[in-house]
């Protein structure tokens, strides 16, 4: 248990088939039980990092490594990474018409079990109902088709619901706060906090553009990404500085490198 939950070393990545790296040497360590916020201006590579951690096939890793619980995950398919304990809450979750949330999540839970094993249907239903209550979701929500016709807030809540049911070791939350009004933001933040309380080893990488969500989820560390690199890391106070001064000072520093 000595190695970090997530350890990223010298990670470089680009969109497959294109020139120009988006990630240009990312280093980041996240220990079990820690919450890290990853901030940065638009286009700095935050969302790319999230997708590369989850194994999005559109991106090509050109250098570096991602160690999860000490194991290199770069050769793993997205589903293998998921079953290993990595969860990505999407900024723009895909719509899957005709597939109910309950059915989808049951399939995802069963995918984590050994071949031939299946989760007890009633047990699953209980878990699902409980997590939905925690996120203040209407019980009818489980019967709706995954993200089909959902509002922005519903989509984000649905992502956290999935995280709650799948119980990963690492949750990467990609701009989960964007597009949420203050009430929805509080509900989502409380949901994440409850998951952290329930599982003390849960690691969270919280990607955000704004400090707002950090008023509700307190980070242990704040990183700032600029031009594909972590330009600055610090305590929670770093977020205050960013809010007061913006990203310009870091961008200028990055430009001079």
């Amino acid at each position: 248990m000595s190695e970090p939950l997530l350890s990223i070393r010298g990670l470089r990545a680009k969109v497959g088939g294109e020139d120009g790296e988006i990630l240009r040497g990312v280093d980041l360590d996240l220990e079990r039980g820690e919450v890290h916020a990853l901030m940065g201006p638009n286009g700095s590579g935050k969302s790319t990092l999230a997708k590369v951690i989850a194994g999005h096939p559109a991106y090509e890793v050109t250098a570096g490594e991602i160690l999860f619980e000490g194991e290199d995950v770069l050769e793993l398919e997205p589903d293998e990474r998921s079953r290993a304990g990595i969860f990505l809450a999407f900024q723009y979750p895909a719509e899957i018409p005709g597939v109910s949330i309950a059915n989808f999540l049951r399939t995802a839970v069963n995918a984590r079990l050994d071949e031939g094993e299946e989760m007890d249907v009633f047990g699953f239903q209980r878990t699902l109902t409980e997590k939905m209550e925690m996120l203040k979701m209407d019980p009818g929500f489980a019967a709706r088709y995954v993200n089909d016709g959902f509002s922005g807030g519903e989509k984000k809540r649905n992502e956290i619901l999935q995280m709650a049911v799948l119980r990963p070791a690492l949750g990467v939350l990609d701009e989960t706060d964007s597009g949420l009004d203050i009430d929805a933001l509080k509900i989502v933040a409380r949901g994440v906090n409850r998951l952290s309380e329930a599982d003390e080893a849960l690691g969270v990488l919280l990607i955000t553009h704004y400090k707002r969500i950090l008023n509700y989820i307190e980070p242990d560390t704040v990183h700032v990404m600029v031009a594909g690199r972590i330009a600055e890391s610090g305590g929670a106070s770093l977020a205050d500085k960013l809010e007061a001064e913006g990203y310009d000072w870091l961008q200028q520093a990055a430009a001079t490198v």
Binding site: G55, E77, R81, S82, F87, A94, I96, L105, A108
Partner: peptide
């Protein structure tokens, strides 16, 4: 691709 990636990121293999 986005639909496939989404479902796979929840642990379903590609065929599933």
């Amino acid at each position: 691709d986005e639909q496939l990636f989404y479902l796979m990121s929840r642990g379903l293999d590609e065929a599933e």
